[in-house]
Simulated assay, not measured.
Amino acid sequence: MKMRGIEVPLLGNIFLLSYPAARLMKENRLPGCVVTDELLAQLDRERGLPDKGLEARLLRAAKMYAILKGLGYSGAHIGGHMVSYEQVTAVIEKGEELSDSWEELVKEFQYPLPGGFYFFQKDQRSGLNELLPTELKGSSSDVSGNGLYGFSRFCHNLFFDPGKKGFAIMRRLAMKVKGSRMEKPFHKLEYLLKTMLYGCRDCGDCALVDVAFLCPMSQCPKHQRNGPCGGSYQGWCEVYPGTQKCIYVKAYTRLKRWGRESQLETVLVPPCNWDLDSSSGWLNYFLGKDHTARRLGIEEPSDKSIKSG
């Protein structure tokens, strides 16, 4: 948010993590939550104490409170399984007591995921993030882009860019095809080609260009069109862990190779327009009906223009 100059109040989340909950997170049975071996081992040792680790959990939460306050958060949500009012009060009071030395506490919360990807580089002195994105070159996350992406970009720039002659030709063709005997064969040809190349689901509101020419309708079980869900783990899809990479991991690494990764944060993709389902995505684009056409200001032609072609 600092990089974007966004100034809004933020709340931090403090969870009093018990060993049973941590074990579920470690096994990825609570999607979106990550617990490393090191942290789980620490909680395992603490649960052997007479109070089953309660005091250690409360102190850890108080230290997190102090860090959040030092970082400038406006407040904190304190929760956990069977947490009492008295325990929350104890966390706040101890956190206030520790707040002046919050920077010294940061390094106590270093439980990195081995081989994990972190968007920002780490400041080795403070243990906090720097305002510098991680350099992917040479890292395990840096994968070669698929040749299909280059081919798809070439075709898209040639025929789908409103500023190119190819677009004008395709728009005139679309107006001739729409409502004619050629509309069904045209749609079938499009569906065949896009199914062979991208696994098309024929949604009619195509988002290929938004996700590095990867189809979110067929390659994401949740049909996420505007970024990943919170369930992916180590780059794997929540629904198919270990067998299918998250589509947005693939999209990011593909776009990174071409220096276009910022596309994922600058283009807001709306939900699929199901009124267009099972219709030609190409016709919907060139005739100004789908979300991409509307974003680019492509207007729908009048019925008279379509009939006259």
Rank of each mutant, 00 (worst) to 15 (best):
R181W: 09
S180L: 02
P185F: 07
M182L: 14
E183G: 01
M170T: 07
M175R: 02
P185G: 07
M175T: 02
E190I: 08
P185Y: 06
A174Y: 09
K194V: 03
R171V: 14
L197Y: 13
T195G: 11
L192P: 02
P185E: 08
Y198G: 03
L192D: 05
G199I: 15
L197E: 06
G179V: 11
L173I: 13
M175H: 01
H187I: 05
R181M: 07
E183S: 01
T195P: 00
F186C: 00
M170I: 06
F186E: 05
L192A: 09
A174T: 14
L197G: 02
R181Y: 07
L173D: 08
G179Q: 11
Y198E: 01
K194T: 07
K194R: 07
R172I: 09
M182N: 01
T195H: 06
G199R: 14
R181V: 13
R171A: 13
S180H: 00
K184C: 03
P185W: 08
R171Y: 11
L193G: 02
L192V: 02
M175P: 01
T195E: 10
L192I: 04
T195S: 11
L193R: 04
H187C: 09
R181F: 09
Y191V: 10
L192R: 04
G179Y: 10
A174S: 15
T195R: 08
E183A: 00
Y191P: 05
K188S: 07
R172D: 15
Y191R: 13
R181D: 13
M196A: 13
G199A: 15
E183D: 04
S180W: 00
K184A: 08
G179F: 11
G179L: 12
L197T: 15
A174R: 04
M196G: 06
M175F: 02
P185L: 08
E183T: 00
L193S: 07
L192K: 06
R172Y: 12
A174D: 11
Y198K: 03
H187G: 10
A174W: 04
R171K: 14
S180C: 02
S180D: 02
M175D: 05
K184F: 05
Y198C: 02
T195M: 01
G179H: 10
M196V: 15
S180Q: 00
E190D: 09
K178S: 14
K178N: 01
K178W: 10
L189N: 02
M175A: 05
G179N: 11
V177K: 08
G179A: 12
K188I: 10
G199T: 15
L192S: 06
G199D: 15
G199C: 15
R172A: 12
Y198H: 06
M182Q: 02
L189K: 01
L193F: 06
E183P: 04
M170H: 06
Y191N: 13
S180T: 00
K184E: 14
F186G: 02
G179E: 11
E183Y: 00
K188E: 14
R171I: 13
Y198W: 01
A174N: 10
Y198T: 04
R172W: 10
M175V: 06
M196Q: 10
M170L: 12
R171S: 13
